[in-house]
Amino acid sequence: MLGKLIKYDLRDILKNVVVLYVIGLLLSISIKICDRLFFNSSFRESFPTLTTVFTATLFTAFFFIIAAINLYTLFRCVRRFYRNVLCQEGYLTNTIPIKKVFIIISNLIASTIVLMLSLMVCFLLILFLQYHDYTVFDSLKNIANGFNKEIGMSIYNFIGIMFITSILSTLSSMSIIYLAFSLGQLSNHNRVLFSILYGILIYIVIQFILLLILLSFSSHLDTLFASWEALSDQVASTRIIYFMCIVSSIINAIITIVCTALTSRILERKLNLE
């Protein structure tokens, strides 16, 4: 059942986002073609203003598309949960014979997949735009070697751990948004406005709790970091990166679990469909 839920959530979220991916790709291809055909040195010298304006317009449009892909993906994810669970479509979603927590988990997984996909598409589009010859890949190789030399860990390990951390961070952010909307729907008027206010409130509460935890562990952290000072820079850097990522992942996992449990509880006990 969870797999089927994810399938429908993914389809709905991705529907118009894919159009933006295609627009982004077409735009970057256009920039490449224009670059090859018109912006060689003789054309540029003959029509300097035209080439400058045209280049600036294309690049502005490209960066707007990059921003739009990420913002619109986030909008679709939030909209899917709000409309499918808390508005009129909720009359169907909330009466299918499945636990409420699976509905939330499905939305979380689908949103995280599409948000990460959008980030990767944007990265690939930028990489495609930068690709002239193999220089960009040489630059990447140099960065990877330098990273290994300076930090003391493989770039692949770093990307892997950052990827896991990003997934958990996305999950926790989405679970906070879902909790905010679940609280917002308790109001009979201005539900979206109340949801935003609850979102801000939840964020402040979480930051406050984290600050308290950090303060209570500050002496332990000082001792830990002091013990690493004796180590070589490479080993210390690796440990710091692992430590930060693991702590961040644990915190995000806890936030996700708590927010999902609370959202599930609200949907079971206090659902207030329009």
Partner: peptide, 11 residues
């Protein structure tokens, strides 16, 4: 259950 509103995804 048939609710008294459109409960289907119009898209």
């Amino acid at each position: 259950y048939l609710p008294d509103c459109n409960f289907l995804n119009e898209e």
